[in-house]
Design a protein around this nucleic acid. Structure first.
Length: 410
DNA sequence: TCTGGGGTCCTAGGACCC
DNA sequence: TCTGGGGTCCTAGGACCC
């Protein structure tokens, strides 16, 4: 069966939200950054991009290429709120909505075409509503599958609408550079280039055995991608796989080598991980510690698997400490990370009626999306200060298991 | 004046059990 | 006491996405 998939990509999402919230920023080059001292540009407005500002640049780099650049410290609550509302709009057109990130979603509108007429009509309706409600634009791709819909949405920015009809797939892919495909990154591009494969057309025609010899099972998938084939379904809210790991990492304001201070940060990270694990109703058996040294390039990760499933912050902290005790630090530490994996979902009390359960699942899934993508720019600096002001590193009452009752009500 | 933070998936090799 | 092989779990590391 032929599907019709939309991929919707908010243009310069964080920057657009900030420009909308503060009219003085409109039409100007702005960059959204994290709050710490060692932050990078998360998103920049199109005005800034036109002057050479790029995601990932340090603030000073951005200012160098664009001296008028206005720096805005990101506010995740604004972005998660807007993202949630926008995804609600999507669900007015189909229940089959999959949030790929905070600013990208896929919609399977196959079964909505009869009601709304066409995918293009749906796309224009959605664009108009997002512009009207939030003052921001989006680029939409329409195609027979997720891979091509995402490719299409990238072809026209900002405020684009690109359709890849089934009969046009081969023509469009013929000269499309392979790196445009979602899933082919820098390294894979280099490997394929060394095999004289530069375009999707060439990838799709490549002998499959040649690809599998080099890439194993991935080779089969690569050839399909080159041909524009993708049968992965749009997975709607509430039907995603269980979360597989929960982790937090933070670049410190300054490199540290004082063991007591390292332990202090480790405890805070463990608290963040534990609190979120409890909110998700999961506990885990494997604790992972990640350390990046002052030179930036040297880092290591070590994990330990316990006998029991845990989600209490102090237990996570204890495991992270025990890993730390097995190594001798070679340099001051730049970044610390703690994560919990090997997760098990804990049974919870479900509402009696199916409809309530479904709603609960959808709300919970949305919350998880928010949690996952909403914390992009949370800053350790401010967090630490807040904690310090609160007086101690003991787990405060608010860190008690959140459970289902605290799920955001809309 | 350097270079964030949240994930997922895959592979390879070793330990251990049957 | 030797042999092979399958399955599972674990650790480490890399590639990819936003």
């Amino acid at each position: 069966m032929t599907h019709t998939i939309l991929h919707i990509d908010m243009n310069a999402f964080f920057a657009s939200v900030e420009q909308q919230a503060n009219p003085e920023l409109r039409g100007k080059p702005i960059a959204v950054v994290g709050g710490g001292g060692r932050t990078v540009i998360t998103t920049s407005s199109y005005e800034a991009r036109a002057r050479g500002v790029k995601t990932g640049m340090a603030i000073w780099e951005g200012k160098r290429v664009c001296p008028e650049l206005i720096i805005v410290v990101g506010d995740n609550r604004k972005y998660t709120y807007t993202s949630t509302r926008i995804n609600e709009i999507f669900r007015d057109y189909t229940p089959e909505v999959e949030a790929f990130s905070i600013d990208e979603s896929w919609l399977d509108v196959t079964h909505s075409l009869g009601i709304f007429g066409s995918a293009v009509t749906i796309a224009y309706l959605i664009k108009a509503r997002i512009r009207h409600s939030f003052g921001i634009t989006c680029s939409i791709g329409i195609a027979p599958n997720k891979l091509l819909a995402k490719l299409a949405s990238d072809m026209q920015k900002p405020d684009g609408l690109t359709i890849i009809a089934p009969e046009d797939v081969a023509r469009i892919l013929e000269r499309m550079p392979i790196k445009e495909l979602c899933g082919i990154g820098r390294k894979m591009e280099r490997h394929l280039n060394m095999m004289s494969i530069y375009t999707c057309g060439e990838l799709g025609r490549c002998d499959e055995a040649r690809l599998t010899r080099k890439f194993g099972i991935v080779g089969t998938r690569l050839k399909q991608m080159g041909q524009g084939m993708d049968n992965s379904p749009v997975v709607q809210f509430g039907e995603e796989d269980e979360v597989k790991s929960v982790g937090h990492s933070r670049t410190l304001e300054q490199d540290i080598d004082d063991p007591a201070e390292i332990r202090r940060f480790l405890l805070q990270l463990s608290e963040m991980v534990g609190s979120r694990a409890r909110k998700y109703n999961v506990s885990g058996k494997t604790v992972h510690l990640y350390v990046r040294y002052a030179d930036f390039f040297t880092s290591w990760g070590k994990q330990t698997t316990l006998k029991n499933y845990i989600n209490q912050s102090d237990e996570i902290y204890k495991a992270a400490l025990s890993i730390l005790s097995t190594v001798e630090l070679e340099q001051p530490v730049r970044l610390l990370g703690v994560s919990l994996s090997n997760l098990k979902h804990q049974a919870e009390q479900l509402p009696l009626f199916l409809e309530d359960r479904k709603k609960l699942e959808a709300t919970k899934a949305m919350d998880e999306v928010n949690e996952r993508f909403g914390s992009v720019a949370v800053t350790f600096g401010s967090l630490v200060k807040d904690r310090d002001r609160a007086g101690s590193h003991v787990i405060p009452p608010s860190w008690r298991p959140d459970g289902i009752k605290n799920v955001r009500v809309r």
